[in-house]
Structures are given as C-alpha cells and as structure tokens.
C-alpha cells in the first residue's frame, strides 16, 4: 500500500507540474488543493496503520465517530444546528490531536454513507478533522480551559468548518478567483455559518463539563488498563 501510494502520488504530482507549466498557476489551484486534501486524508489513515494504537483505541475512536455522526442525523430542526462539530472538538480535546482528526474524518465519512456522499465528502472529512486537531492541541496546552473560552473556540469552529466546506465549491467553480468574488461567495452562506457557530457555542456551554467528564473517565480507564 505504501509503495503504491508513493507511485500514485508521484504520478499525480508530475501531472500537476505539467499542467502548471502550460497554464496560469491560478487555474490549477483548485486541482492542487483537492489532491492535497485527499493525500492528507489517505496519509493520516496510513499513519494510523503504523501507529501503536490497538483494539481499544479502534473501538473508542469508532464509537466516538459514530456518536458524532449520529448527531448530524438527529438534530434536524435547523440547517447547521448539529452537535457533531462540538463532539469532534471535545473528542480531540480529551484524547489528543491525532485521535481528534480520526474521529472527525471518520464521522464525516460514515455519516455520508447514510446521508449522501459527494464532492463535499473529502472536505467534510478534512474540516472536522482539523477541528479535532486544533482541539487536541488546545487540550495538550491547556487541559483546564474554562467552559466559556472553549465555547468561544467552538463558536469559531462554526466559521472555520463552514469556510473549509465552502472551499471545495468556491475554489473549483468560481472564476475569476479574486478577493472580492471569494468574499461575496462566502457572504452568501453567512447566515448558516452564524447559525452553526451559535449552536456550537450553545452546545459547548451546555454540554462541555458533563461530556468532558465522561470522556476523561474513559480515557483514564484506557490508560490504567494498559500493559505495554
């Protein structure tokens, strides 16, 4: 698998090089970014294969991913209002950046099997993955962060995630790519972004302490039961 992916990556990178030689660089940004996103996703799962994580971590990450994914299906009362972003954030916060990335991307991939895969899938995987990573870094730096601060970060995640999600569409299908056109494309989705951000904030304010306590307890159980 490793060899194969090296071959394939080299192949596609050379194609990209060829293309950029001939055309305007700006035209190939979308293709380039798409392939980078795909490569990051594939590499992170390949790294998972090589990591020391065992059956316990697989089970915990899978469980958290399913939990986060189900959130998307159950809160249907307004677009953008779902606990998924928040659940991914606390998973990363408690278990670490890499685990957070896996929870976020797995949740997106599996829930899309039920809700519909599309060109947005890799971006969603990436977007929630990033939310997990950032939260993981925060968790490492400041484990005793206050609810309010974390909620503000969750508020920002609303924009971060939505803006990453907008990318696949804007980069690929908006021409010319100028600051003005990008801003107005983003402005179109602003209401949803704000809704998402506010709901994230509320989820965090309401659930943070309670759910983090549960997660920490399980993390402890994971750790003490370890024999290496």
């Amino acid at each position: 698998m490793r060899k194969l992916s090296i071959y394939l990556t080299t192949f596609f990178i050379s194609i990209l090089l060829f293309l950029t030689i001939t055309g305007k660089i700006q035209e190939y940004i979308p293709l380039f970014v798409t392939i980078v996103v795909l490569a990051i996703l594939i590499l992170s799962y390949m790294y998972f294969e090589k990591s020391a994580m065992g059956t316990k971590e697989i089970a915990v990450i899978a469980t958290l991913s399913a939990f986060a994914g189900v959130g998307r299906a159950i809160f249907a009362f307004a677009p953008g209002v779902q606990p998924t972003t928040f659940i991914v954030a606390i998973s990363g916060f408690v278990f670490g950046p890499y685990e957070g990335f896996l929870v976020g991307s797995t949740a997106a991939f599996i829930s899309n099997i039920f809700l519909g895969q599309g060109p947005w899938s890799p971006w969603q995987m990436f977007g929630w993955g990033i939310v997990g990573v950032i939260s993981g870094i925060i968790g490492k730096a400041r484990a005793n962060i206050s609810v309010e601060k974390f909620s503000v970060i969750c508020f920002l995640y609303g924009f971060l995630f939505d803006w990453i999600m907008n990318l696949w569409h804007v980069l690929g299908y908006i021409r010319p790519l100028t600051l003005k056109s990008i801003i107005s494309a983003y402005a179109l989705g602003l209401t949803f972004d704000v809704l998402h951000a506010i709901s994230n904030f509320l989820f965090s304010m309401i659930f943070f302490e309670r759910l983090v306590r549960v997660l920490r307890r399980f993390k402890r159980r994971l750790e003490i039961t370890y024999i290496r």
């Binding site: 059956t55 316990k56 003490i224 039961t225 370890y226 024999i227």
Partner: peptide, 13 residues
C-alpha cells in the same frame, strides 16, 4: 476472561 487472556492482557490489573 482470565482463561481467554483478556485478563490481564486487555484489562490490566
């Protein structure tokens, strides 16, 4: 679980 080896290799203790 002791016979299966899940104890102690999975659960510790």
């Amino acid at each position: 679980k002791c016979i299966s080896g899940a104890i102690p290799y999975f659960y510790g203790g």
